[in-house]
Design a protein around this nucleic acid. Sequence first.
DNA 1: CGTATTATTGAGGTGATTCAATGCACGTGG
DNA 2: CCACGTGCATTGAATCACCTCAATAATACG
Lengths: 244, 244
Amino acid sequence: MGTPAPLAVRQSLASLCGSCAGSSRGLCHGLDGADQFALSEASSLVRLPARGAVFREGDRANAVFTLVDGAAKLLRTLPDGRQQIIGFRFPGDLIGFTARERYPCDAELVCDATVCRVDRGKLEAMSRGCSGISHRLLELCAEDLAAAQEQLAAMAQRSSEGRVAAFLLMLRDAARRNGASGLDLGLPMTRADIGDYLGLTIESVSRVFAAFRRGGLLREPSRGEVRLLDMPGLEALATGEGAH
Amino acid sequence: MGTPAPLAVRQSLASLCGSCAGSSRGLCHGLDGADQFALSEASSLVRLPARGAVFREGDRANAVFTLVDGAAKLLRTLPDGRQQIIGFRFPGDLIGFTARERYPCDAELVCDATVCRVDRGKLEAMSRGCSGISHRLLELCAEDLAAAQEQLAAMAQRSSEGRVAAFLLMLRDAARRNGASGLDLGLPMTRADIGDYLGLTIESVSRVFAAFRRGGLLREPSRGEVRLLDMPGLEALATGEGAH
DNA sequence: CGTATTATTGAGGTGATTCAATGCACGTGG
DNA sequence: CCACGTGCATTGAATCACCTCAATAATACG
């Protein structure tokens, strides 16, 4: 992990950075070539299986990760054993960035995935040197914060249909950021995951999906896929029309 | 606003910084004397009345504020006119820090308050110079993020009693950070504010308070004051005993 | 003192949950 | 190839928690 990446990996990272610089979320976004190169020197690609943990709550936060491919969930296990899902992460998203010594939650993959691991010490050393990275980290943190607060607002006073609609639109936005149309979505997470995220039971989630299907808002061509058919309808539900 | 603070104010800031350096949350925490002085040079004290706005959603984010005294709420106005309260802030808390160009939400005072205004340009210039401030900002942002995620977890699957209990404990923690016992709390916000924060109606909030009073969990000696009588009971409710 | 604002309390309705049963897809082993 | 088990999703019926609507009470303020 601490050793320099072999040439082949370094090259894949270079191209990776090339692509993630185009995204509005990646770690490299807005960095100049030198910074990007420095970053790729400190990083390594890791392939992990579905249900694998990127890290666990309480682990020493020795690295940050960029999700290259796949999908992950951030979660905290509650005292009574249930899990609260904090959020989902998609390709291009940063995972595990914190100012604390230990990770504040688990990061678990919902399907096979590839992550780009960046050593924290090296990242911090770099961020002291070049203010570009340091500023970028702050931006990312602020963005995460805004997203969390957004979601908070979303969650508190929305009906089950509103929550699921908002969730689907979030999924759509994530897909769009990665170049997809936003009409056909991968839905790698289970109903249980969605429920734990939205504060609903499995059954409620299932019923809402069924209602959306009946109402012509979406289709599910197969397990793990959704096609959104009525964006305006979903937007309306998510925006609180159906708040109560 | 852009002019240097008069000597009297500067002195009060010096003492302010002295006190806030003791807190674990203030902007100055962990900064050395020189940094603290530089910071006080860039700041000014402002006194605002209850219901006054520190800033509004969409305003250019030209400054960050430390709440010196009083209490504030952060909120977003929903399309249908209701307000979603993102969070409450208490003395020592930083308000309005963002990486974006504009504030993402309103900041409104729930009672008369004093804030310490720091010009953003100066703060950023300083943060480029001394990495102490820059790192502190990142820490604060990460802390806010953790708090928001914590609250998210709290909110989603808790009963009304659990939510109010969690809210009271949050208030207690804020009071403790400012040196109070945590038993007698100021409760400057209305039931409506609490409801908008917790995703409950005014009536539900009122009923929960009534139930807590009947159950001997707390007393309300007067409007705007609470005395917590049964911490373990409240903790139990907040921790999800009464999850459903 | 009267008015506005905030808080409380009750009765009834609605939506999400709980409990329970069934369906469906997938992999495994006979 | 089919029987079986497992995990995930769906659906139904009954319950319960919170909301809505409405009236009253307490408090603050001019």
